[in-house]
């Protein structure tokens, strides 16, 4: 006799006593309250993160006020701190990452959903998703020892040479080729956001009803016309959501950037020059920070970073949620 049948038998034979009902009632209440408490813990966690960051950054904002956000100076000796250079670095590296990452990710998603032979679809999706699983420190060490020397020797001299005579561009791509710097960090980030944007985009591309695509093909549309005039308009919110998700990752990415950014507290006109980002700055200096004001200035940057990513991620989630509700109501 198996155990389920045994239990059923014993239940059938036993009388349901008030004490048993009470016992079950207690267990029910226990589990309900435990799960509820755990759910509320998640909320408290976010509250705690915000509170502790705010509390930790009070000394910095008291000392420097709003100027903290607009000052480039970062001098631990005289204890004058401003977050402009890291904020600039964070935004510019993420911008480069998006500039390269978005078209490539969309290309991969189009390839997987429209071009790829069926038998190749799963392996390629898996490979792209494995890229997402690789820890950021691996990208960092690879960026430092493989990508940077390659860019320094082959790509950056070419860029500098090409734009040497062109106004504006010549200062944007001014030499010397360091290898490490804002540009390299942007490229590493573009590789890292690729799997995130691709997997979301592919998923939302697959929600497009086959009938819609088939009717466009039936009218004689080319693959690109189907993608640009049917698939993309239909999935716009989801694609933007995926891009924002990738942007959130790029903004907060720490280790990969720390390896290749060069950690220079200045805003250079050239994007080939070393710089710093908020996360790299914290990772590099936090354990060595002496004194409350120094530590607090770093925590304040963490608060700024969390604020920016919170807004970006919240916007991404809202867009994906809207799409989910729409496709949910249609099914």
């Amino acid at each position: 006799m198996n155990s389920t049948a045994q239990v059923a038998n014993s239940i059938a034979q036993s009388e349901i006593s008030p004490s048993m009902l009470r016992r079950h009632g207690i267990w029910d209440a226990l589990l309900r309250n435990a799960t509820r408490t755990a759910a509320i813990t998640v909320l408290l966690l976010l509250g705690g993160v915000i509170l502790s960051l705010v509390q930790g950054s009070i000394p910095a904002f008291k000392a420097f006020g709003f100027g903290f956000l607009t000052t480039e100076t970062w001098n631990p000796v005289t204890e004058k701190f401003g977050a402009l250079a890291p904020i600039y670095g964070t935004l510019v590296t993420s911008f480069i990452a998006m500039l390269i990452g978005i078209p490539v990710s969309l290309g991969v998603a189009i390839f997987i959903t429209e071009l790829c032979p069926l038998w190749l679809r799963r392996p390629i999706s898996t490979a792209i998703e494995l890229l997402a699983g690789i820890p950021s420190i691996i990208y960092g060490i690879w960026g430092l020892f493989v990508l940077s020397p390659f860019l320094q020797a082959h790509v950056q001299p070419l860029i500098i040479g090409t734009f040497a005579g062109v106004p504006v561009l010549s200062s944007l791509f001014a030499g010397p080729p360091y290898g490490i710097g804002i540009f390299t960090a942007g490229i590493i980030l573009s590789i890292m956001v690729l799997p995130y944007i691709t997997s979301v985009t592919r998923d939302v591309f697959e929600t497009v009803p086959a009938v819609l695509k088939e009717s466009a093909y039936g009218l004689g549309c080319t693959t690109w016309e189907v993608v640009s005039k049917v698939v993309l308009p239909y999935t716009r919110a989801g694609v933007i959501g995926g891009i924002m998700l990738g942007l959130g990752r790029a903004l907060g990415e720490t280790m990969a950037v720390t390896f290749v950014i060069g950690n220079a507290h200045k805003i250079a006109a050239s994007i080939l020059a070393p710089g710093t980002t908020i996360s790299a700055n914290i990772a590099n200096e936090f354990t060595e920070a002496e004194g409350d004001l120094y530590t607090s200035s770093l925590v304040a940057q963490g608060l700024i970073l969390f604020g920016i990513t919170f807004i970006v991620l919240a916007a991404a989630r809202l867009m994906l949620l809207r799409l989910e509700m729409r496709s949910g109501s249609k099914v």
Binding site: V42, L45, L46, V49, L53, L245, G248, R249, L251, G252, E253, T254, S279, I282, A283, G302, L305, F306, T309, F310, L313, A314, R317
Partner: peptide, 11 residues
């Protein structure tokens, strides 16, 4: 939770 899922780990 979805925001915590992708929040920067350094924070």
């Amino acid at each position: 939770n979805d925001i915590l899922l992708s929040a920067p780990s350094i924070v």
